[in-house]
Design a protein around this nucleic acid. Sequence first.
RNA 1: UCCCCGGUUGUGUAAUGGUAGCACGGCAGACUCUGGAUCUGCUUGUGGGGGUUCAAAUCCUCCCUGGGGAACCA
Length: 579
Amino acid sequence: MSDPEKNATIGSEAGGPGLDFIREAVAEDLRSGRFAYVRTRLPPEPNGWMHIGHAKAFSIDYYVAKDFGGTCNLRFDDTNPAKEDMSYVEAIKRDTFWLGLDCRDRVLFASDYYERMYELAVKLIKKGVAYVDDLSAEQMSEYRGTAVADKNNVTHTPPGRDSPYRNRSVEENLDLFERMRAGEFADGAKTLRAKIDMAHPNLVMRDPPMYRIKREPHYRTGNAWCIYPMYDFQEAMSDAIEGVTHSLCSLEYEIHRPLYDWFIREAEVFPSRQIEFSRLNISHTVLSKRWLLRLVQDGVVSGWDDPRMPTIAGLRRRGYTPEAIRDFLGRIGIAKTDSLVDIQLLEHCLREDLNRRADRVMAVLRPLKLIIENWPAGKVDELEAVNNPEDPSAGARKVPFSGELWIERDDFAEVPPPKYFRLFPGNSVRLRYGYIVTCTGFDKDPATGEVVAVRCTYDPETRGGNAPDNRKVKGTIHWVSAAHAVPMEARLFDHLFVAERPMDVPDGVDWVTTVNPGSLEVLSGYAEPCLASAEPGRSFQFERLGYFCCDPDTRPGAPVFNRSVSLRDTWAKIEKKQA
RNA sequence: UCCCCGGUUGUGUAAUGGUAGCACGGCAGACUCUGGAUCUGCUUGUGGGGGUUCAAAUCCUCCCUGGGGAACCA
């Protein structure tokens, strides 16, 4: 790595109006000389799957460093062996890099600093600002005090009480801490605590624990340690060890900042600066490891990578691109207000990205037979279709056309509603890239009354969809030649929750039960021949229907597609208004 | 007021004492071989009251209101 100081830039665009408050603070720190360079870190705990909320936090860290010519570490905060695992490390790395946050050369682990942190803890003991306590967890909690509501519902925080072990001598504390490490005491029997102020109005500052005894094999250090640092001490020390200038985190840690600063001051280490921002909330979904875990465990979704999940793995499987996600994260901004971002913005970003890049194809999701009565028996026409009108370099392809086609059930109406300009008896539509046809009638199942086939005649002069007589045909519908169609499965998704804020449920209602029952719909349809060989992960636009991504469940000859997002559907709006 | 942090159109964000702007959504129209895309227009906002000032979203003050805060989790 080159000298970071040489790379520090305030940047022409960095420093003026329009900067978010974090970049503003960073620019000021560079200007004032508080820091000579910028270094941030992504601090995941490897205990679960990464979701788009993490992606927001990560990209703030990553791009703040990048914008100021600094560096960004990917540091795993792995100090709770009970929950952590190497598989999560790999999953988080994969998702982070996939998003384009490339910290490949700077992957670090807090667990590599255990020895150094231990030494720093000893330093605090020697300074007389840390002590070994024998209180149990329950006792400690009771001694620290708690916020209580009085009869007027005003909460108060009475001062806490000193532990009887608070005034042990430095020598005794040193000895005890060493023996904690050596494994002489049972789990939970002792803790190392910072000696701050048991009457502090901020509960976090009332002699918080720094180390606990926990005999649990660690996924990286095995049984080398039986004591593990707690978050506040670990975070401050890890940041210092790495020379992190700006330790960016979400608002929930705001109240921990005084403690973060206290540890830095007392340990006399590199003075990282913690800055907090609000975490991401998105409407109609939940963004919390614990809640997402619940959805997986209860079988509400098929797994962490279910396409309805807001996890990175889920979004990827759904068909989200890194570009779309990054665009979204850029648009929502950075602030300290509690916000709820409309999921429509995320969907908009995907549409915009895929519109530029996805090849168009034709597929029918709810098939209805269309019979062209005057089509020469056995004739097959090869018609040329444009792959992507937004991208001429995508070229064109041939699509087979014959006398029996599949069309969308929605594209025929026995009795047309107002402003309907698709197929109905007597009306003409254009078959996309094909011919203009006129509806002559339809067949009904005598028993059920269901329309089973639509009949029409075609105009041979209109090959390719052009009308030589310049007549106006309002509707253009998509189709698939029945004889050439590839059967396929389409999975349609709706919001995971109907409610904007799924967690806001009345007392006594379990939020999990409010999952949108219509969030998954599986259809059997037909696609044009080129989709027979679609590769998992590839995205297409099914004309007039939406963007679809080929799912890993795809088997040879049996493609499966996930609808990533629908197209904007003006007709659906009109229909809704009419209803 | 136990402590901390917030409150700008429906949503998210900008304006750093000097024209309240942008994006998404919504609505209307143009165009179109996707009722797609694209383009144009429109609408609506500084939580409230006082104060300082020529001038306040911005500074002061009181009130209202939302979030966070006791873990041997991070």
